[in-house]
Write a protein that binds this DNA or RNA. Structure first.
Lengths: 374, 374
DNA sequence: TTGTATGCGTTATCAC
DNA sequence: GTGATAACGCATACAA
């Protein structure tokens, strides 16, 4: 109720401005919003009053009256604080990049971003509340189970980012997992001649992991390769530590190793590499290892990681654009959008390193994007 | 005005809930906010109605009425889009980390974060507008000139993050640039015996850059070293690309090189390293290079970067905490807060690498924090 | 061209 | 315990 900060007797309102300029509040509102035509003289008087009083419009009042907030809510999963290795910390870059892209697009379109990190167990209706504060909501990577998504979508414009792409309830913007993994399979089978693979899956039931696994497995088999069932222990929970443990266990079993381990993300690929190194197995000479995402350290790792790049920033931007189209009811709104991925060939698949390992780093950074698809 | 999304006839209000539960809106408001005492029976009826109707309170209305938004505005400088190298884009930018920390603290304290990137020329009163939408505002680095800061502080609780610490108008939360840079100077002069330095400054007028430069210069000179004036071209705009260009220009001038280039942040250090490499100059053998921030890729770079770690996330958290204390008028509010920094000694200063370069990567990753101050 | 009056959905102050 | 009802600050339909 009270202004709260000891900042005088509350901020000035349009009433104050109106009095100061000898006009009505309607006139003030008009000049503030460039509506109707006013005598320039009046206009100037109002603007002067605005400056004199350091008037700033009250957001909530404006929003309440206009029925629109010009705010976009973005919810993302915040990992538990305790189990964050440095590699995990790096992985947050994906989220950060998405946020950055979203903020940029929002700004361009005249919206602001309301950020909401939700912890795994969600607990409260934190994200439902977003609905009341924003004109639309973006959900990043499965912050909500599908049922609740459908419910949300009924109440507010909604965009799902980096999800499975299945929910019909909302607009989906995601990345082309299938294309990326197919390119990977082609490269490993056709270029390197590998036949025996293992696929390191992410968290059980994760759509991203499932999609990537299926895409790789299908294509590899189609090309004559074979993939160990992930029940053989090739499964972790997206984390480096998990993949490290899984790989060590697998090594201890004594079963013959595959020629290549294809991982559902970069963090796990790094875990696999660590485990191999610890066991004295060379990569990529003895076993090739690949990842997915192209997190920043991927190209700085030893060996530099062959992986699939996904455009994180664009994902954020595209999400906001889709949402705004939805909010503003534009007909050209695409119900779904799939962003391309790109195979980044580096050394961990046993491709030879380029002459100047870091020459490309001022540019987009790959040693060499895959060219087999061009 | 209109509901806008074709989502029925507008979201339900407390009136709808009241009707559905056969009570008055006052009662609904009471159960929603846990005020006064109500008959449990009534309470349940209302809650049931809330569920039935999927009611979510209208934020703006609530905010207008209560006079508080429970929102914190965070403004940061957004680098020009065209000037974003992969290092800028991919690396956990200092800004991203701060945002993350801020979001976390805000959530804990019951606030949400409203993000506003401001482009260099500021142009509009974007950040002034924040004042009308949030209970308080955080300004990251140098988003506003000092005069406007003072004006803002008069109108709203205000926290300056990573600023000079000078403005008395607002609360300052920052990092101990001086201590970090002094440690760096001591290490380079006393341990390595370097005498001739250059300092690569960040954006002109940025308090962080100025402070770091002064701290390093003063200490280095005190220890008998000399530092080229930054007018000699050792100045960029915090970016890798800028530092790369500046360094190339400097090399082209033919002037003798310093023994070490100390940079105001990691991104620029990387730019310097790139430029040196391109020119066939070895680092750290011919010229040592150091950074500031300890962004994640710093320790993965070749050579791994000697730098000063600053607790970026904590900076964000501390900023929010200080702001909330200000907003809620708590007396224990510290006017100023300075977070410690830590010198991270790696290879780019020509210190020898540790036996297993990547051994620490599953942990927090530094090779070796500086021990000269202990 | 400008002023008057009403409504936006809540919270909170009264009465009952 | 619960129900009317007056703000909150702004936008806007309708008058003038």
């Amino acid at each position: 109720m009270a202004a709260g900060g000891g900042h005088g007797s509350g901020p000035p309102t349009i009433y104050d401005v109106a009095r100061h300029a000898n006009v009505s509040i309607a006139t003030v509102s008009r000049v503030l919003n460039n509506h109707g035509y006013l005598r320039p003289e009046t206009r100037d008087r109002v603007l002067q009053a605005v400056r004199d009083l350091h008037f700033v419009p009250n957001g909530p009042a404006r929003q309440l009256s206009s029925g629109t907030t010009k705010v976009i809510g973005l919810a993302f999963i915040r990992p538990p604080e305790d189990e964050m290795s440095s590699v995990e910390e790096d992985s947050l870059l994906f989220t950060d990049a998405v946020v950055r892209g979203a903020e940029l697009a929002a700004q361009r379109l005249g919206y602001s971003l309301l950020l909401t990190g939700v912890t795994e167990g969600d607990s409260s209706n934190e994200v439902a509340m977003l609905t009341g504060k924003a004109d639309g909501v973006i959900l990043l990577d499965r912050v909500l189970p599908e049922k609740r998504v459908a419910a949300l979508a009924r109440r507010s414009p909604l965009v799902l980012l980096a999800g499975s792409g299945k929910p019909q309830a909302a607009v989906n913007v995601r990345v082309d997992n299938v294309q990326g993994m197919q390119a990977m399979a082609r490269h490993l089978v056709s270029h390197h001649g590998f036949r025996r693979f293992a696929f390191m899956a992410g968290k059980e039931g994760s759509p991203d992991s499932t999609t990537r696994e299926e895409a790789f497995t299908d294509m590899a088999r189609f090309l004559g390769g074979e993939v160990e069932p992930s029940e053989e222990g090739w499964s972790a929970d997206w984390t480096t530590a998990g993949a490290y443990r899984a790989t060590r266990a697998r090594l201890a079993s004594g079963a013959p190793l595959p020629q290549a381990v294809v991982c559902a993300n970069d963090q796990m690929a790094i875990g696999v590499l660590q485990a191999l190194r610890t066991a004295g197995i060379r990569a990529p000479e003895d076993v090739a290892v690949t990842g997915f995402d192209d997190i920043p350290i991927a190209r700085h790792w030893q060996p530099p990681l062959t992986t699939v790049r996904q455009p994180s920033q664009q994902l954020g931007s595209a999400g906001v654009e889709a949402l705004v189209a939805l909010i503003e009811d534009r007909p050209n709104a695409q119900r779904d959008r799939v962003l391309p991925t790109q195979l980044m060939v580096r050394a961990s698949c046993s491709c030879p390193p380029p002459p100047y390992p870091e020459a490309g780093l001022l540019d987009t950074g790959p040693w060499r994007p895959d060219s087999s698809t061009t």
